[in-house]
Simulated assay, not measured.
Amino acid sequence: MAKASGSAAALRAVVVRYPGRPELGPLNLTVAPGEIVAVVGASGAGKSTLLRLLAGLETPAGGTVQRPAGAVGFVFQSPTLMPWADALANAALPLELCGIARAEARRRAAEALAAVGLAERLGARPRQLSGGMAMRVSLARALVVDPDLLLLDEPFAALDSVTRRRLIEDLHALWAARSPRPALVFVTHDVEEAVYLAGRAVVLDAATGRVAAELALPGALPRPAGWRSAPECRAAVEALAEALAAAMPSQDAA
C-alpha cells in the first residue's frame, strides 16, 4: 500500500468485489491535507467501504490506495467502547496497543478527553454515559493518536438533533485547533450536515460506487454563527440534494 504524496489520502482506480454482488468502482478520490470531505450516497453505494479502504481495513481487488505517512483515526457508527473499561482506558487503548507505556498513554488520553469536554468523566463506564458522551469518548480515542487523517462513519446519526449539532460544532473546533489540521472524511446521509461540515462533498453512484458528482461547498470553515440560514448554505444544500437524487436508483429518484 503506497503512502500519499502531496495528499492526505487517495483512491486511484480502486475496485472492490464481494461474492454475489456487482463490483464497486473504479473509484477515484483524492483528499488534501487539512481538507474536510463529506461523502454521501444511497445505502449500499460503498460509503463505509470507502472509509475501510482508506483505513486499511479492507483490501481492494484492483487499483491503488494511498494513505498518509502518519496515523489514521476512525470513528465508527456506534461508539464501540469496551463496556468493562472507563472512559480513560477506552481512549488510551490505541496508544497502549502501539506499545506506549500505560502512564503516558493515559496522560494523553486524559488530554484528548478534556478536549472533547469530558475532563470530569474520566472514570465513567460506558453505561454511565449518554449517547453523546459515549460518542465523544470514541472521538477522543480517534484523536489520541494525533491522526493525519480522521475517518468518520455516520458517527452522529443515532443522536438527537441538538446533540448532533453540538458535536458537529465541537468537531469543527477540534479540527481548527490542531496544527497541522488533519484531513477529515465524513460519511453521512444528511445533506445539510454534509454542507455545514465540509468544504467539499462527494456523491457516490448507487449502482456502481463510483464518484457521480463532486461539489465545492461555499464559505469558510469552521462555519460562522447563523450560517445554516444563509442563502449560500441553502443553495448548496439544494444543489447537493439534486446531485444525490440523480445518483440514486431510478425507482428512488423521484
Rank of each mutant, 00 (worst) to 15 (best):
L151K: 14
A92T: 04
A247K: 02
L129C: 10
G25N: 08
S130R: 11
D160R: 08
P22T: 05
A85G: 00
L143G: 00
S43T: 12
L197F: 12
A236W: 09
R67L: 01
A92P: 01
A176N: 12
R136V: 07
L113V: 02
P218D: 03
L139H: 01
L171M: 13
T64N: 07
A246M: 09
P94S: 07
V15Y: 06
L129F: 11
A45T: 05
R141L: 08
L152P: 00
G123W: 09
F74T: 11
A176E: 15
E58N: 04
L29V: 01
V72A: 10
A140V: 11
P231C: 09
L244S: 02
G226I: 10
T30W: 04
P180I: 08
A32M: 13
A206G: 07
A247T: 00
L93D: 09
V37C: 09
A89L: 13
L88K: 08
D160L: 05
G6N: 10
P60C: 03
A212W: 03
A177P: 06
V195E: 05
V195C: 06
A225W: 07
E111Q: 14
A253V: 01
R166W: 01
A241E: 14
G6K: 13
G226P: 09
L159S: 01
E111H: 03
R228V: 02
A8H: 07
R200M: 09
D205Y: 03
A216S: 13
V187M: 04
G44Y: 08
R21W: 13
D148S: 15
L204K: 10
A246C: 08
N28W: 06
A220F: 03
R164F: 02
E111T: 11
L149T: 06
L129W: 11
R107I: 00
S161W: 04
L152R: 13
A55H: 05
L11E: 02
G209F: 02
R102H: 13
A61H: 13
L167S: 06
L184S: 01
R210F: 04
L57E: 10
F76C: 04
A134D: 04
D170M: 15
A45H: 05
G219K: 10
R200L: 10
A61I: 00
A245K: 15
E232A: 15
A241R: 15
E232I: 05
S43V: 06
